[in-house]
Amino acid sequence: MVKIAVCLKSALDTTGINVDAISGNTSSMPTTKGLPRKISDFDRNALEEGIRVKEKLGGELITFTVADESAKEFIREALAIGADRGVLISQSEVPILEEVNGSSTDKSETTGLDYLAISKLLVAAILKEGGIDLILCGEVSVDWFSGQTGPRISQLLGIPQITSVKCLNIDGDLIEATKNVDGQDLVLSCPFPALVSVTKAINQPRLPNLMQIMAATSKPLNIWSLDDLAEELSKLGALKCQVSFDSLEPAPSNRKSQVCEDEEPEPAAAWLLDNLKKEGYLR
């Protein structure tokens, strides 16, 4: 029997963000306004891996999320996919640092919880829950790609971590995990309790069926406030942010953007190869 915690981030779905920003057009500042949220892709892989471990060894799987209450729909989704219980650490009173809006000039909107605070909130909830053997999370989040939260959680709990894992095996209370570093596979091992962050290569996340979606509504979803976590948080030090957001600018591009629209493939190919020769990329 294994008690598994999976950390799920309610991430911005940035696939729809305007691409004009890339071209360096300064009038089109990237903005998060109107962008939907979703469970961060890598965290879905973490959830899938947790369910597989549970199916093999038996036990309980609990998800942990720091977000406002709108994230309840994602936790319900995780419950439908296979989690037993969901915990939402509600932070509606303190905005998350990442919820910045490029068009906003009001600095008061752009201060909020950084990874230091978010990790402490997750750790406080994991401590309150107690008895966790394995913590799983995505190696990074799909909107910010920082990859700080997993390592911060393991340090705060004083447990080992293995990050960017693409293959996970558990034998008794020993974890065996494979990660790829510069084309080499490293097989690492550590005992429970431990934190493992996963890559997208580790598995193909399953989708819930209709029966599971209906059954999820009767699974428990706990909402914990900062007050509920006061005792645990008192051991972790201040939630004070050490990083503040200053400004946002579009990512510039220095590309030439020369396009050949010749209908015929041969002249187009000749045009390209001539340019490559001219630039010194081809003999």
Binding site: T14, D143, Q242, V243, F245, S247, L248, E249, P250
Partner: peptide
Amino acid sequence: LIYGGAGIANFIMSGSMS
């Protein structure tokens, strides 16, 4: 870079250690 590379964010490190 943030938001899948669409923007560059500038952060101020305000703590005594960064």
